[in-house]
């Protein structure tokens, strides 16, 4: 099956003064793929992701997201992507229902569609009893799953997740990933940054960033073979130590 490319990045670079945060990175992501974007803190992951979603303007290089250019067509990119940041991206003082409706609203969905989507999401997450409760009272794992569902409220082609599962245990992370798989099976491309190596194993392909550069790219199995390591942890440590 020839897979269509949905994110195409070529020598993308971002400099802040003399400091090069992202140094000529190149990679492709295919439709429906779960692409893991790994790296230590400060390796340039967030800067890279911000260029792809139109929050930061690249210094040099090319990139297309959902077929649109990151320099000139950020507005069209924004219509086609969802984003969940490392902070929860939900309003803690609004109810579950109000949060979903709000995101539906800012993506310009018609009122009817918003109501339908909201009911669907509440149903799917089993939050019927808590729909009118404020989000701040939900357990962390629930908030993260809700945030993911909200990031997909407008049926985007790609969902960017920036360290989505910080601070929860592996079981809760696993539940979160069930949702990711479901979306990917429906053809949504997932671009996820993480520094949990168990999560890296869940990805179709991963790239590992060190000091602004992509040092390794491939499936988890390929990378483990290449660096003759048992686990992704080993691969990561070998790369990070250079």
């Amino acid at each position: 099956m020839p897979s269509e490319i949905v994110i195409k990045v070529n020598n993308l670079t971002k400099k802040f003064g003399d400091f090069t945060a992202v140094d000529q990175i190149t990679f492709d992501v295919k439709v429906g793929e779960i692409f893991g974007f790994l790296g230590a803190n400060g390796a340039g992951k967030t800067t890279a992701i911000k260029m792809l979603i139109g929050l930061n303007r690249p210094t040099d290089g090319e990139a297309q997201v959902a077929g649109y250019d990151v320099y000139r067509e950020t507005e069209k990119i924004k219509q086609n992507i969802g984003y969940m940041s490392q902070k929860f991206s939900l309003y803690e003082d609004l109810s579950v229902r109000q949060n979903i409706e709000f995101y539906g609203g800012i993506y310009g969905l018609p009122r009817k569609a918003i109501r339908k989507k909201t009911d669907e999401i509440i149903q799917k997450l089993g939050l019927q009893d808590r729909a009118k409760k404020v989000v701040g009272d939900l357990p962390l794992g629930w908030k993260q799953r809700l945030a993911f569902a909200v990031a997909g409220v407008h049926d985007p082609r790609i969902i960017f997740l920036d360290e989505p599962t910080g601070g929860v245990d592996p079981v809760t992370r696993r539940q979160f990933w069930e949702m990711i798989y479901e979306s990917a099976n429906n053809g949504v491309t997932i671009f996820v940054t993480t520094h949990y190596m168990d999560e890296a194993e869940y990805c179709d392909r991963i790239s590992i960033m060190v000091d602004g550069e992509i040092k390794a790219l491939g499936t988890p199995a390929e990378l483990k073979a290449k660096f003759s390591s048992e686990t992704m942890d080993d691969v990561f440590i070998k790369l990070a130590r250079g």
Binding site: K87, F88, Y103
Partner: peptide, 13 residues
């Protein structure tokens, strides 16, 4: 502060 601004800026608004 809470990071929700990023989300608004990522939206087409």
């Amino acid at each position: 502060e809470t990071g929700t601004m990023d989300l608004l800026l990522v939206s087409p608004v």
